[in-house]
Design a protein around this nucleic acid. Structure first.
Length: 476
DNA sequence: ATGTGC
């Protein structure tokens, strides 16, 4: 993207003023180098989002943004139901409530080095991964509905997790307003054997070491200790979320037309929040959120079991679990008014600042943990939401490194074997059922995650707390 | 993202 096409507000803030059908401006948070590397399509998509009915504030773009389906990945947009605002399946993303959880362990990374190979094998056996991966859990129709209504709280009731985890999950582990009866039988059928599975693409489970600490006070509150092991899981709602997204995309294309909404791009299919289709999507999507919360809870439980086998004294505690593909009802101040908004975050994380009442009490003074998944080779980051994020971007921040290259281009450039060997030389063990998947996920296909988090910090969205170095990567 | 797909 050519920076000359944008209005530069400061080093990390850029605007496109409303023109034509746009109701609000586009606001992009990124440094100049990230802007130059960003696809022109991101600005086009963000402008299209700014033209949707009932949008409030701005069409926001995070520093890790790239081209997505309809909405950019790394996009944040809030809608006012009473002003004709819409909800969009493409604004949430196909992988409903895809997200990240990190667990601290108290294990010294140096100690783990001695068992790294066998731990990698055990994790690869315990965590089903890959396209169409199925696990050891099969749900009947009643259990499926209970899971879709209960989320991670349901998983804990079933013995796949610990009650203390729930306070460290958004929505306390259970999304209210879920309507399992609005989820199609086909979506439920696809999910029957997929609970506790990782899936494919950019999903992973990593064993990481706390490599560097930037904010000792926040790190202490988060339980992050230099040289200790952290487990991070990136996964979502698997086949169920995908099926819900696909079905509602079709329904919303018709609903938008029926509501007389002119779509600049058919991929922006949406329905008025107050319409029948809009309400049905929200109920189904919230069930999808519960599916993702339950899935990450179960995967965390499997990882915990394996770690305790190797380290019986390990205390595997959930630091936090965040979703980055959601639409949530939140109260925000825009201009002079505070009002209820439907906030779409697609490839973007909620980032509540210090003192916010929705942040769990032990973490509240530091602010909400913002977990940033990097690529396999470059590591991940833990940030903390900043007070300014509320005003700057509806309390949102980036979610990852963001792709810099298409999967196709990455396949052309690297072989999976070569990536596995190169990472092994650097002490990073990769286990995956798909070498093709590994090539697509080559570290070089991603943006510089350090530059992304620095831009987020300079923009006042989230500040750096710690950097995590990958040791073992279980890849889908 | 995805029982990967025109």
């Amino acid at each position: 993207m050519d920076p000359a096409l944008l209005n530069r507000v400061d080093d990390v803030t850029w605007r496109i003023e409303p023109s034509g059908p746009m109701h609000v401006p586009v606001v992009i948070f990124a440094d100049e180098a990230l802007i130059r590397d960003m696809d022109d399509k991101v600005a086009e998509q963000a402008r299209n989002v700014a033209a949707l009915p009932g949008i409030v504030g701005a069409s926001y773009v995070m520093p890790d943004a790239h081209w997505g389906y309809g909405f950019p990945i790394g996009g944040v947009a809030a809608f006012d139901a009473e002003a004709g605002g819409v909800v969009s399946a493409g604004g949430v993303g196909f992988d409903i409530s895809c997200g990240v959880r990190s667990m601290t362990t108290g294990i010294a990374a140096a100690e783990l080095e001695h068992v790294k190979e066998s731990l990698a094998e055990s994790l690869a056996r315990a965590i089903p991964a890959g396209v169409g991966s199925e696990g050891t859990i099969t749900l009947d129709a009643r259990q499926m509905d209970a899971m879709l209504a209960g989320g991670a709280a349901w998983a804990v009731e079933q013995g796949w997790g610990e009650p203390a985890d729930l306070t460290r999950i958004e929505e306390d582990g259970r999304m209210a307003g879920a309507r399992p009866d609005f989820v199609s039988n086909r979506a439920k059928e696809r999910q029957r054997r997929e609970m506790g599975t990782l899936g494919s693409g950019n999903h992973y489970l990593e064993i990481q070491a706390v490599e560097e600490i930037f904010d000792p006070t926040a790190a202490a509150a988060y339980g992050l200790v230099g040289g200790q092991v952290v487990v991070t899981i990136h996964c979502g709602s698997r086949g169920l979320g995908h099926q819900i997204g696909s079905e509602f995309l079709i329904e919303m294309a018709a609903a938008a037309q029926a509501a007389g909404i002119a779509l600049p791009d058919r991929e922006l299919a949406c329905a008025p929040i107050l319409s029948e289709v809009g309400q049905r999507y929200l109920g189904a999507m919230r069930a999808g959120i519960n599916c993702a919360l339950a899935n990450r809870e179960i995967l965390g439980h499997f990882a915990r079991r394996v770690l305790r086998h190797f380290f019986p004294r390990a205390e595997v505690r959930l630091l936090f679990d965040v979703s980055h593909n959601t639409c949530k009802v939140e109260r925000h101040r825009t201009g002079r008014r505070e009002r209820e908004l439907f906030v779409h975050r697609k490839g973007a994380t909620r980032a509540l600042g210090p003192g916010h009442p929705e942040v769990p009490a032990p973490l509240r003074a530091a602010g909400q943990p913002v977990l940033i998944g990097g690529s396999m080779g470059t590591g991940s980051w833990v940030l903390a939401g900043m007070a300014q994020s509320e005003e700057r971007a509806l309390a949102s921040a980036c979610h990852g490194a963001g792709r810099a290259m298409s999967r196709h281009a990455a396949l052309h450039r690297w072989s999976g074997r070569q990536i596995v060997d190169e990472l092994a030389m650097r002490g990073i063990l990769v286990r995956s059922p798909s070498l093709r998947g590994v090539a697509e996920e080559a570290p070089g296909a991603y943006k510089d995650v350090a530059a992304v988090v620095l831009a987020a910090e300079h923009a006042g969205l989230a500040r750096r707390v710690a950097r995590l170095r990958p040791m073992i990567v279980i890849k889908g």
